[in-house]
């Protein structure tokens, strides 16, 4: 279970999160919606442990353990996975090499055995096939020359391999055509389980047609302005965000 309590975050002199509270239960898919510039991506980065942000106050608890006491690597090993809005290109690092390094690093951190190469290859191939990730992509340097859709599939492939406790999807729908969106959403749905929570950050209802959320939260001005069920997303689609900006202010 993820509990974000009274989170205050700034970058330089700019305050971005202003006392944000949020709870996501095990097995729950929570959608975070809201207009541009309200701190949705900041929330995802701060949970994952990006170093540029200053956390003035608050806690982020994953199963009762404060993530803010951990560095980025430790959070990943504790089960946090951030699917990036803009996945980084890493020239010179073969995708397979990277996937193996990540899987083995997490296995080591949890005191598990590292995968043998044939088992690893099989695991990756199976997961890749389900997500329509071509074998050729796995041989290329990580994300280099990948299309927007390919990059997002690669993110979901990594999530499928790493099996996190908490999956954060930061605008995973951006830059995807409708077919790619369906494949990516199916990949996420296949990972839904009673032990795994998701934070799905999006501007649009469209993604939520494919990934049905249990709860919907509207973020405005650095905090949750309103929470509700899936019907809230539909309502937003009709009325827009203007009133929520007003509400938060």
């Amino acid at each position: 279970m993820l509990e974000v309590k009274n989170l205050h975050v700034s970058i330089g002199d700019r305050k971005i999160l202003d006392g944000l509270n949020l709870t996501v239960k095990n097995g729950e898919v929570a959608a975070i919606m809201g207009p541009n510039g309200t701190g949705k991506s900041t929330l995802s980065y701060v949970i994952a442990g990006r170093p540029d942000y200053e956390v003035a106050e608050g806690e982020i608890l994953l199963d009762g353990v404060n993530l803010l006491d951990m560095d980025t690597t430790e959070r990943a090993n504790a089960g946090v996975f951030l699917a990036f809005q803009y996945p980084l290109e890493i020239p010179g690092v073969a995708t397979m090499t990277f996937l193996k390094a990540a899987l083995n690093a997490q296995a080591r951190a949890r005191g598990q055995k590292e995968l043998q190469t044939p088992d690893f290859m099989k695991k990756v191939r199976d997961a890749a096939q389900k997500l329509g990730v071509k074998q050729d992509m796995l041989k290329r340097p990580l994300n280099v020359g990948f299309s927007g859709g390919e990059k997002k599939r690669m993110e979901i492939l990594q999530m499928a391999l790493l099996q996190p406790k908490l999956g954060i999807l930061d605008e995973t729908d951006s830059g995807l055509d409708i077919d790619a969106l369906r494949v990516v959403a199916e990949g996420v749905n296949a990972l839904r389980s009673k032990d795994r929570s998701f934070l799905v950050i999006t501007h649009y209802q469209r993604l939520l047609d494919y990934i049905k959320p249990d709860t919907v939260h509207v973020m405005a001005r650095g905090k949750i302005a309103r929470s509700g069920g899936p019907e809230l997303a539909l309502e937003l689609e009709k009325s827009g965000y203007a009133e929520f900006i007003g509400e938060a202010a």
């Binding site: 442990g49 990006r50 560095d71 690597t73 996975f81 990036f84």
Partner: peptide
Amino acid sequence: FYLQARGLP
């Protein structure tokens, strides 16, 4: 950050 976010020290 990207690599660390995947668990690499």
